[in-house]
């Protein structure tokens, strides 16, 4: 039980007549990076939103630290959410605040820290993501990669147990993608928290993942280490892997 941070049991969710999640069963190990890989629009984001309680499932259970969360009231769910940090697809920084205030926001709202303590904590976090000297900037003045770094800093600022990543490398050029991935790996090694990442970027994910789950047609069809997945005989997995291979190049083999 201790090494399982999130346990998802037979989770189902439909939008209209479209069954997006069709009985998901998954155990996310504590202190590891677990990556869920699947097609765009395949229900990865819906799964993540179910975990954090932004969407209520039709049926099934989600256990977080031994608490079943799908039937919790909003107030109790907020207590669960305090264990989480989340990096959104487009960082979801608050447009009306500069970088410093964005990162300081969770501290101001959830802790009784003095303004001095907040300043030192925020500066430290911004340094960890490599953004010293940018604290006066507004989010609209930043590039996508920089925003993701700020988003990560904000997700980490309250030292949560579990951090969720929604497509951390989407809409980024390959070089920036790599730096973000390295940053994720780096912080995980440093803090030893549970990371749950969803992505379609299978090659990038193999770089950081401890465990990989393949989401296909609303089900987890495969779960294992990156090594296991690469040797999978499952047709859907093979198809996904083959799609990343470019004829004439030997890329993608780590």
């Amino acid at each position: 039980m201790e090494d399982v941070a999130i346990r998802i049991v037979d989770l189902q969710k439909s939008f209209g007549e479209q069954r997006v999640l069709d009985g998901i069963n998954l155990e996310v190990e504590a202190g590891k990076i677990t990556v869920i890989i699947g097609k765009s629009g395949g229900g990865k984001s819906v799964l993540l939103k179910n975990v954090i309680g932004l969407i209520k499932p039709d049926s099934g259970e989600i256990w977080i630290d031994g608490v079943e969360t799908t039937s919790l009231s909003e107030r109790d769910m907020n207590n669960i959410r305090m264990k989480f940090g989340m990096l959104f697809q487009e960082a979801a920084l608050f447009d009306s605040m500069d970088l410093f205030d964005n990162v300081a926001f969770p501290l101001r709202e959830h802790t009784k820290m003095s303004e001095n303590e907040i300043t030192s904590t925020v500066e430290e976090r911004l340094k960890q993501v490599g953004l010293t000297g940018f604290s006066e900037k507004m989010p609209s003045e930043l590039s996508g990669g920089m925003r993701k770094r700020v988003g990560l800093a904000r997700a980490l600022v309250l030292d949560p147990e579990i951090i969720l990543f929604d497509e951390p490398t989407s809409a980024l050029d390959p070089i920036i993608s790599l730096t973000i991935l390295d940053l994720i790996k780096q912080t995980q090694t440093y803090f030893k928290k549970t990371y749950l990442v969803i992505s379609h970027d299978i090659l990038g994910m193999f770089r950081i993942a401890d465990k990989v789950a393949m989401l296909y047609n609303g089900k987890i069809i495969e779960y294992g280490t990156p090594h296991d997945i690469k040797r999978s005989t499952n047709e859907a997995t093979k198809e996904f892997l083959n799609a990343t291979k470019i004829p004439g190049f030997t890329g993608g083999d780590l």
Binding site: K49, N79, F94, H110
Partner: peptide, 18 residues
């Protein structure tokens, strides 16, 4: 509306803020 489509409203919820 912008906050909604860029998930800033979700970000608030995730931060356990109403």
């Amino acid at each position: 509306g912008t906050m909604r489509v860029t998930e800033q409203i979700d970000a608030l919820t995730v931060m356990a803020l109403n």
